[in-house]
């Protein structure tokens, strides 16, 4: 989405509520509750929301995308069928899943799910190194924004080894990789004269050393 043009002004709402309709509350909570069953991981659920035709993605509201993503994950894993949604009740036999109990909500949310892992080796890059974001266009999940691909930036922080979404979304394996904050100037990304810079957090496989 970064750098795309033509979306118009930013529309803000004073005293905005957390949700705008009851179905948004339920879609949000259903997504979190089903996520806690362990039938898929965070990166798989992001991919299920984002991997759709651009016109479809842009025409849905935020929680409509959540609903569509949740249905896709459920259908892929044989936990739900479109026939059941049309009927409005369960038809197929239920599978055994780990159900989140109400009393476990607070401990679960408070604990969260950190993604930093023991690194397998030393980081390739250090603060101050110049790197180029790879010019790569995978069809599977990635978190390297298109607007930095092929551009040169500077390593600003080394975060440790984090679960690598590109693999995690496909195989479910964590494959931890070093994560860096990389800073790009507005001139490098946009040819702009503005006194501005943009950072992204990039896993090591996204980056190559500048020669």
């Amino acid at each position: 989405m970064g750098g795309n043009q033509g979306f118009g002004p930013i529309e803000r709402e004073a005293d905005e509520p957390a949700f705008h309709a009851e179905w948004e509350r339920r879609a949000f909570a259903l997504t979190l509750a089903m996520g806690a069953t362990g039938q898929w991981n965070l990166d798989q659920s992001r991919f299920a929301r984002e991997d759709r035709e651009p016109a479809d993605y842009l025409s849905r509201t935020y929680y409509e995308i959540w609903e569509a993503g949740l249905v896709r994950l459920l259908e892929e894993r044989g936990l739900l069928s479109e026939e059941e949604i049309q009927a409005g009740h369960a038809i197929d036999t239920a599978r055994e899943v780990r159900r989140l109990a109400a009393e476990d909500v607070e401990p679960l949310l408070t604990r969260g799910g950190g993604v930093e892992r023991e690194p397998a080796g030393e980081p390739r890059f250090a603060v101050g190194d110049r790197v180029r974001a790879r010019n790569t266009h995978p069809l599977t999940h990635t978190r390297l924004p298109r607007y930095v691909r092929g551009h040169v930036g500077t390593i600003e922080r080394v975060h440790g080894a984090h679960v690598y979404p590109d693999v995690h979304a496909v195989t479910g394996e964590e494959d931890p990789q070093w994560l860096y904050t990389v800073r790009f100037t507005a001139r490098e990304l946009w040819g702009s004269e503005e006194n501005a810079s943009i950072t992204v957090d990039a896993w090591e496989p996204y980056l190559e050393r500048l020669r």
Partner: peptide, 11 residues
């Protein structure tokens, strides 16, 4: 100077 932080990972 404006610094924009694009939250692309879990940070």
């Amino acid at each position: 100077e404006i610094r924009v932080w694009d939250s692309t990972a879990e940070v």
